[in-house]
Amino acid sequence: MKAKIIITPKKAVLDPQGKTVQTALEHMGYTGVTGVHIGKYIEIDLAPGTDKAAASKALNDAAHKLFSNPVIEDYKLEIE
């Protein structure tokens, strides 16, 4: 079993990395790009047979406290 957490900067937060990559894309000739947001991807291995609901509750808790900083970041959690 795996948990996947995708962390992205909140919309209101300055994302200079995203901006720089967006500019690079424009310089390369790619058109139609209206925004680039750079975040983090965390993959967590869970023991087989782990209770999905309990894992989701625990990981959401950890995501708030550790994986992301709610002041500047949003996250999405998937367990599969």
Binding site: P16, Q17, T20, N69, V71, I72
Partner: peptide, 17 residues
Amino acid sequence: LTEAGLLPGALIRNRDL
């Protein structure tokens, strides 16, 4: 201290990287 919640806000990447 901001991460610990003892001070408000956060420190992010410098705008010029």
